[in-house]
Amino acid sequence: MKRFALVSMMFLMSVVNAQEKFTLHFESGKHDLTKKQTEVFNTWLFANKTSKVVAINGYTDEDGTNTFNDSLSLRRVNFVQNIITAHKLKIREDFKTRSFGEEHNHSKIKAENRKVVIHYILEKDLVKEEEILGIKPQVVSDDAIVPIEEEDMHFPEGATLEEKIKLSKPGTRIVMKDILFYQNTFAVMPTSKRAIDELLMILDKNPKMRIEIQGHICCVREDKRNLSLERAKQVRRILEGNMIPGKRIKVKGFGVSHPKYPIPEANEIEAAANRRVEIMILSK
């Protein structure tokens, strides 16, 4: 029991320590850096081109009025932030700056309280960024996901499936144009192998990714045999047969309720667009 507690404590310490801190010191009453501190800052900037800044906090000593110190700490934060922005370092979308003025003095030596502290995460630790920051992932019900049509994502022309998925967010639908079936059956044609292999590779590389396979048919007024669902299920069977857990794959058949073109279609091009398999990203 004691050993388990020790291991847990060591794990928590490693997570906390994964958030790095870098401190810059200022002269009394100044919001810009001395030549020596500028050199220190430039060295840090060069060494952290791939790090991500998560917060910048500013402090002052007790000299001067509260109002002056509050303003001074804010100017120090803004000075540092502008330089970081100019060097194009990564910054969290919910990045925060805080100016504490003369509050939160941790040292009796005044010079040590005239500072700005940059909180950041090294590139090697970015995979556990949310964990390091103590942010619990929001659990969104699959039913609450709003579908986004592929054309509304404006993917780059010629983008591969992997590239599209990287640019996608939950709800994005992607048409699997090369997954084809024999007429009036859910038997997958051999020419579909490359597209399915690509999807398998992506799912294997992204073990947290979940998708919904959506089937659609064409050319009829009603999906009486539920063929669209059976086709989606058949794709899932193939993925499961290649070691992708079924819990990561939902299926749905839309029949002819979501056509790209009005039914009856005017030509085979429209029919082919309606007769399709799509994947919808549930989570990545």
Score class of each variant (00 low, 15 high):
122 L>R: 10
265 E>G: 04
5 A>L: 15
4 F>P: 06
258 H>I: 04
147 P>I: 01
83 I>Y: 02
224 K>C: 03
86 A>G: 05
177 K>P: 05
178 D>H: 13
119 H>A: 10
196 I>R: 10
51 S>P: 06
199 L>C: 01
172 T>D: 00
77 V>T: 15
105 N>F: 00
158 G>P: 09
159 A>V: 08
193 K>A: 14
85 T>Q: 14
62 E>K: 04
108 K>A: 07
179 I>W: 00
132 I>Q: 03
247 K>F: 06
36 K>D: 07
284 K>D: 05
35 K>F: 03
123 E>G: 03
204 D>Y: 07
279 I>L: 11
204 D>V: 05
5 A>D: 13
55 A>L: 09
253 G>A: 09
194 R>E: 14
61 D>A: 07
49 K>R: 15
42 N>L: 03
25 H>K: 13
172 T>A: 10
176 M>C: 11
73 S>Q: 01
284 K>W: 08
201 M>T: 15
267 N>L: 09
13 M>S: 09
68 F>P: 00
226 N>R: 06
102 E>N: 14
157 E>G: 11
261 Y>G: 00
277 V>G: 00
37 Q>M: 11
159 A>R: 09
270 E>N: 10
115 K>T: 06
58 G>S: 04
5 A>M: 14
1 M>L: 12
176 M>K: 01
208 K>Q: 13
111 A>N: 08
102 E>P: 11
82 N>M: 09
39 E>L: 08
133 L>P: 01
183 Q>W: 08
216 H>T: 02
232 A>D: 05
254 F>K: 11
200 L>C: 01
150 E>D: 12
56 I>S: 01
174 I>L: 09
49 K>M: 08
53 V>T: 12
45 L>A: 09
115 K>M: 06
157 E>I: 12
79 F>T: 15
